[in-house]
Amino acid sequence: MNITGGTAAGNLTDRIGQLVKALRDDVPECVASGAIDMSTGMLLAVETLDTHPAEVLDLLAAATLDLFQGRNVVMIEDIWKERRGVRSERHYFQEILVNSDNLTHLFIRTESRDDVVIVVVCRKTVNVGMLFAQARRVVRDIGQL
């Protein structure tokens, strides 16, 4: 299901925009935040300190889709759920932290819609505990999409 469709699209779009802005404002050392639709792999909203070419942002969205729902990831989720006797359609991986040379990227599925993943990009000097705490707080408080 494409989350941007339907009669509530304006409200949903507004709430996603508020969520992404709050993440950018409230998470320490945040340089960018965004939201990706996992059903389409499209970037729904983005807030950054710098301007980035559209191709880079589109690649981030596509990479997020692969990171959470790539063929091998889904296979691993299914095996783990089977071995643990879990009978749920809910995705197993909910949060993923990725460190690059200069940045820390936190990817979180929203609780209310597992077809939306938010991304928070911070400087590498961020306190990872504070990154998780603030991002989770914002997603919990505003992320009821």
Score class of each variant (00 low, 15 high):
Gly70Asn: 10
Leu44Gly: 01
Glu82Val: 05
Glu77Thr: 08
Glu29Gln: 14
Asp58Ala: 12
Lys124Ser: 08
Val86Ala: 13
Leu67Gln: 06
Arg15Leu: 12
Thr7Ser: 14
Val46Lys: 00
Leu59Glu: 15
Val120Pro: 00
Glu47Ile: 05
Met42Asp: 12
Met1Arg: 11
Val74Phe: 07
Arg87Leu: 13
Val73Thr: 12
Val27Trp: 00
Ala9Trp: 00
Arg136Met: 08
Ile3Thr: 01
Arg136Thr: 07
Leu65Arg: 09
Met42Tyr: 11
Ala22Val: 11
Asn11Gly: 15
Met75His: 10
Ala35Glu: 01
Val98Gln: 10
Asn99Glu: 15
Val116Gln: 02
Leu59Ala: 15
Met1Glu: 03
His105Leu: 11
Ala135His: 03
Met1Lys: 11
Thr125Ile: 12
Thr13Met: 13
Asn127Glu: 07
Leu103His: 07
Gln69Asp: 07
Arg24Lys: 14
Arg90Asp: 09
Pro53Val: 14
Ser100Tyr: 01
Leu19Ala: 07
Glu55Met: 14
Thr13Lys: 11
Ile36Asn: 00
Gly41Asn: 00
Asp14His: 09
Met1Ser: 14
Ala133Tyr: 06
Val116Leu: 09
Asn102Val: 12
Leu44Asp: 09
Thr48Trp: 03
Gly85Val: 11
Ile96Gln: 06
Asn11Trp: 11
Asn11Met: 13
Phe93Glu: 14
Leu49Glu: 14
Asp101Val: 11
Arg84Gln: 15
Ala9Ile: 08
Leu12Asn: 12
Leu97Lys: 10
Ala62Trp: 02
Thr110Phe: 01
Gln18Glu: 13
Val138Ser: 07
Thr7Met: 14
Val73Asn: 03
Val120Tyr: 04
Asn72Val: 11
Arg71Gly: 12
Arg24His: 15
Thr110Trp: 00
Ala9Val: 13
Val98Thr: 11
Val27Glu: 00
Leu65Gln: 13
Glu89Gly: 08
Gly5Pro: 01
Asp78Ser: 13
Thr48Leu: 09
Arg123Met: 11
Asp26Lys: 11
Val138His: 01
Gly34Asn: 02
Leu67Ala: 14
Leu67Ser: 07
Ala62Phe: 04
Phe93Tyr: 14
Asn102Pro: 05
Ile36Arg: 00
Thr104Ile: 05
Asn72Asp: 10
Glu95Trp: 00
Met130Lys: 10
Arg71Ala: 15
His91Pro: 14
Ala45Leu: 05
Ala62Asn: 06
Ala133Glu: 03
Ala8Lys: 13
Glu89Ile: 09
Asp114Pro: 04
Ser33Met: 04
Gly41Ser: 06
Val119Phe: 02
Val73His: 08
Gln69His: 10
Val73Pro: 06
Ala22His: 03
Leu106Thr: 05
Glu111Tyr: 02
Gln134Pro: 04
Leu65Val: 09
Asp25Tyr: 06
Val126Gly: 00
Val86Asp: 09
Arg24Cys: 08
Arg140Asp: 09
Leu12Asp: 07
Asp141His: 10
His52Gly: 07
Asp58Arg: 12
Arg90Lys: 15
Gln144Met: 11
Ser33Lys: 03
Gln94Lys: 13
Asp50Cys: 12
Met38Pro: 03
Val73Phe: 04
Arg84Ser: 15
Gly143Thr: 05
Gln18Phe: 04
Thr104Arg: 08
Leu57Gly: 01
